[in-house]
Design a protein around this nucleic acid. Structure first.
Length: 943
DNA sequence: TGCCTGGAAGTACCT
DNA sequence: TAAGGTACTTCCAGG
């Protein structure tokens, strides 16, 4: 076996799980309420969802549809979604748990992520290995997984540096997590293993020898976690550490990577056991998959996956750009087709139950590889979990994926952040000790409260670290929530991993008015190299240091469904430097003004200096902007363009998209689609305070605009010390001023529903969530998920397709792209759907304005097409709300569609294609940019 | 003793 | 290609 193979870090990538979302994994225990047998039947890949495009079809079908469909309750495939209900994300589940929590539908296929399909990839060989290890007969019948070689997990937990302190490795340090479990006053959300303290210590070991990554997964599920209160103290961890610790004691501290980007393991511990398990996850999954559902031929699956995958190229191997953007955070890591085991009882028949102890052990080993494979792990029941009553099944597999956009309120319920976190919080690395819990700016800690909930059942509040800036809200690739424990922490919490994203679960108790003080959440920074090198990972960590705390709660409804609400905090700057130097704009008193300018705008934020400058810029659609995503079906490579997000790669900055500075620094402006206009606003130095700045809106360069023009501005404290771009709209002089809330363009989405993510009122570039949310829930609930990851297809499901959910109206559920088409809202998103969305989510967004009617543009399959037609650019174009008309002259590649953007702010909410360039700001896709530019260049030439 | 913090050195990457 | 600067990580030390 090659070193690579042995490397635990990469193992999980392959897991192909058919699961609605990773989240489901957590809930695994509960999920397993269906009969295993169902799996097979339920999984006709191709048949499941007629609506889905053939290739993707299968997968999708399987995915959400499965869970929902499988059960009678989900006739429409996404049955749950179909129902009307209060706005919000409802799980469709016919089954209701005894406790009222929605029962899991049986055969559920989870697609966690999928990055590419590659059989026989060198790197992924797990399948074979697994098989060897586990006899088919012994494989858990219920779980079927398909391995896709070459798929690398996204944000592989394993990636977490081994060195990290225990506490830091929250993901991995289950021990700590579990500690809390014990303390939980109420039954924790069902599924997670942590619920049952019973984990027997005995399981031991398999993991011990394993690299952390592997272990992490298993840890969660594995019994081995000792109930010990302090994770570190626990033997397990000790061993764990010993085995894998890669603390930088040596030169090894700095990781070196092989050509393929894999980290060369300096320390033996990395892959102490080049065991065959190298990719436990894969193996296991595959095995199961194969064993259980032979019907799903790998080829079929692959085909489906390919169809779904937006950037299959990534997986394809060496030729693929490592940093391609990956849209689907959560799922991306691997595509796994997984069939949940049947059997409601968690404790009962776990998939692995059949194994002999030895086998089981082996099995576990394998599984360990799958980082965060809660799905798999859960089933490991040799240990009887004390099954706590599960008040709410937030972990239900049917729960929306972490990157889904959910509303903050629905019907009587509203999830609200009562106390926002400070705008700065220095995250700690794994190699460091914890830097404490996130605090509130006024002292104390953030707090979240669920309003309108009158039941006596406690609920679970989920917390994870999401992206900030303009991109759609989704789990942050480079940051993880870190559970803080200690005397100073009053809030119990517990960690679980969903789709490679650590999620802190905090009880929301009626006795506390469903309010939780978040004093147990720190932020862990993952090394950029660990994340970026993963195949399929397209995000760039550099300068991607802003995050948001994302809170979710899943409220069981009388009808058996679950209403999911989500709210995100204001952005939090997590870097050391930024907290000290970079200006941060949190609020702005004006979001628009006539072209004449002259109005005073008050900016609230941090690190404002008397010398701070406020610069307004109008960006021309640059190449990057044009190209938002190149989709590909099947093996076709997907490319995600960097849009003109606030931090588009430009000018001096060159390739770094995220850095605002870059745009302006020297180069930038210009014809290449960068800044076509820059104007420094006058600031009132006398009124300047560290937290507020008063500026006079400069007149726009073109006083004769006929439609609103979106521009951006930023605060600059000096070279390379600039805030992120903020949105601002110039209105035609003769047009009555429409007062706009300080929200950004994307806000229209807000109109759709309370998506509030807790976004600051500021026009923050985009809290994407807003974007995505279609006002019409129904639309969101679309039964079919477009097979193509491409948004276009996904986003616009045929009207007919849209389910009947009503309530969602207000709730914008959209997955990253928030395509109105996301029918999946309300439904579990089909794996395929998920993938698709994730893949290309950021680039394209649809304004919620008219969610019900997805813009045709969205429907365009462009993204799907391997070739990158200009079309793509249209759909996705970048954010720059710059009036393209005006700038057309300067623009190398004028995009007609742009026009819409600029208008949308004023527009009555027409459906517009959102250009989410800003989302990209976080993408420092150097490589990608290059590629895209090249492509564009060539494309332009052709055109 | 361990957790938090702030600061800064060393390294990598970008211009 | 080298120099300078910035950002990222890792360490150190004090509370």
């Amino acid at each position: 076996m090659t070193g690579l193979e042995a490397d635990p870090e990469f193992d999980f990538d392959f897991l192909f799980e058919f699961n609605q979302s990773d989240e489901g994994a957590v809930a695994a225990p509960e999920h397993y309420s269906y009969a295993s047998s169902s799996i097979g039947s339920g999984l006709p890949l191709s048949t499941a969802h007629p609506s889905l495009p053939a290739p993707c079809h299968d997968l999708q079908t399987v995915a959400p549809g499965i869970s929902a469909v499988a059960s009678a309750s989900h006739p429409s495939g996404y049955g749950g979604a179909v129902d009307s209900g209060p706005s919000g994300y409802f799980l469709s589940s016919s089954n209701v748990r005894p406790n009222g929590a929605p029962a899991l539908e049986s055969p559920r296929i989870e697609i966690t992520s999928y990055l590419g399909l590659h059989h026989n990839n060198n790197q992924f060989f797990h399948d074979v290995e697994v098989e060897d290890v586990v006899p088919n007969s012994k494989r858990s019948p219920s779980t079927a997984t398909l391995n896709l070689p070459n798929l690398e997990a996204y944000r592989d937990p394993s990636c977490l540096s081994p060195a990290s302190s225990l506490s830091s490795r929250s993901c991995n340090s289950e021990a700590s997590s579990y500690e809390s479990n014990y303390s939980y006053p109420y039954a924790s959300p069902q599924t997670s293993p942590w619920q049952s303290p019973c984990v027997s210590p005995k399981t031991t070991d398999p993991e011990e020898g394993y690299p952390r990554g592997l272990g992490a997964c298993s840890l969660l599920s594995s019994p081995r976690h000792s109930p010990s209160t302090s994770p570190r103290a626990s033997v397990t961890e000790e061993s764990w550490l010993g085995a894998r610790t890669s603390r930088p004691s040596s030169p090894c501290n700095k990781r070196k990577y092989g050509l393929n980007g894999r980290q060369l393991s300096c320390s033996p511990h990395h892959s102490p056991t080049p065991s065959p398990h190298s990719s436990p996850r894969v193996s296991v999954t595959d095995d199961t998959w194969l064993g259980n559902s032979t019907q799903y031929t790998s080829s079929a699956i692959v085909a489906a996956i390919n169809a779904l995958s937006t950037d299959s190229s990534l997986d394809l191997g060496d030729g693929v750009p490592v940093k391609t953007r990956k849209t689907a955070l959560d799922h991306s890591p691997s595509v796994a087709l997984k069939v949940e085991p049947a059997g409601e009882d968690l404790g009962t028949t776990p998939p692995t139950s059949d194994f002999l102890p030895e086998e089981f052990s082996s099995f576990q080993h394998i599984r360990k590889g799958a980082f965060c494979d809660q799905y798999l792990s859960v089933p490991q029941h040799p240990y009887q979990w004390a099954r706590p009553r599960s008040p709410t099944s937030y972990t239900s597999p049917s729960l929306p994926a972490l990157d889904w956009q959910l509303p903050s309120h629905s019907g009587p319920y509203e999830l609200r952040i009562e106390v926002q976190p400070k705008s700065h919080h220095r995250a700690h690395y794994e190699t460091e000790g914890s830097r404490g819990a996130v605090k509130a700016s006024a002292g104390g800690h953030p707090s979240v409260q669920l309003h309108g909930y009158l039941e006596s059942e406690p609920l679970t509040l989920q917390l994870f670290i999401g992206t900030a800036d303009d991109r759609l809200l989704r789990p942050h690739a480079f940051y993880q929530v870190h559970r803080i424990t200690g005397k100073t922490v009053s809030t119990t919490s517990h960690e679980v991993i969903l789709s490679n994203t650590k999620v802190l679960e905090i009880p929301l108790l009626p006795e506390n008015n469903m309010r939780a003080i978040i004093d147990c959440a720190g932020i862990l920074k993952l090394r950029n190299s660990d994340i970026e090198l993963r195949k399929g990972e397209t995000d760039i960590g550099r300068k991607n240091t802003r995050v948001r705390l994302v809170f979710r709660v899943h409220i069981p409804q009388p009808n058996g469904r679950t209403l999911s609400l989500q709210v995100a905090s204001n952005p939090i700057e997590c870097s050391q430097r930024s907290a000290q130097e970079l200006p941060l704009v949190e609020k702005q008193s004006l979001s628009s003004c006539p072209v004449l300018g002259g109005k005073k705008m008050v900016l609230s934020g941090h690190n404002f200096l008397q010398d701070s400058k406020v610069v307004f810029v109008e960006k021309a659609p640059g190449p990057g902007e044009r190209l938002s995503i190149t989709g590909s079906v099947g093996a076709a490579p997907l490319k995600f363009g960097l849009q003109d997000a606030p931090f588009a790669p430009e000018g001096a900055a060159g390739k770094r998209p995220l850095c605002p500075e870059m745009l302006l620094c020297g180069q930038g402006g210009g014809t290449d689609g960068h800044h076509i206009w820059e104007m420094e606003a006058k600031t009132d130095r006398d009124l300047c305070k560290p937290n507020s700045l008063v500026v006079e809106i400069p007149p726009f360069r073109n006083q004769r605009i006929t439609s609103p023009v979106q521009v951006n501005f930023y605060v600059c404290n000096g070279k390379r010390k600039r805030s992120q771009y903020q949105h601002f709209t110039y209105l035609p002089a003769n047009v009555p001023i429409i007062k706009t809330e300080p929200t950004d363009d994307y806000e229209p989405a807000l109109t759709c529903g309370p998506m509030s993510q807790g976004l600051s009122p500021l026009p923050k570039p985009c809290y994407s969530q807003q974007l995505a949310m279609p006002p019409d829930p129904g639309s969101c609930l679309v039964a079919g998920f477009p097979p193509c990851p491409q948004r276009g297809s996904m986003m616009s499901p045929p009207p007919s397709a849209s389910p009947k959910l009503h309530d969602l109206s207000s709730a914008p559920y959209s997955k990253g792209m928030a395509s109105p088409g996301h029918s999946h809202l309300g439904l579990q998103r089909p794996a395929g759907g998920v993938l698709a969305v994730q893949e290309a989510p950021r680039p394209v967004g649809v304004h919620p304005g008219s969610p019900q009617q997805p813009p045709p543009a969205l429907l365009q399959p462009q993204s799907c097409s391997p070739t990158r037609p200009s079309v793509m650019g249209h759909q996705q174009h970048p954010p720059p709300k710059v009036p393209r008309n005006e700038s057309a002259a300067t623009q190398p590649l004028p995009l007609p569609e742009v026009r819409e953007d600029s208008n949308h702010s004023l527009a009555p909410i027409p459906v517009t294609v959102k250009r989410e360039p800003q989302e990209l700001d976080q993408l420092y896709l150097d490589d990608v940019n290059e590629i895209i530019r090249n492509d564009l260049s060539s494309t332009n030439v052709h055109s």
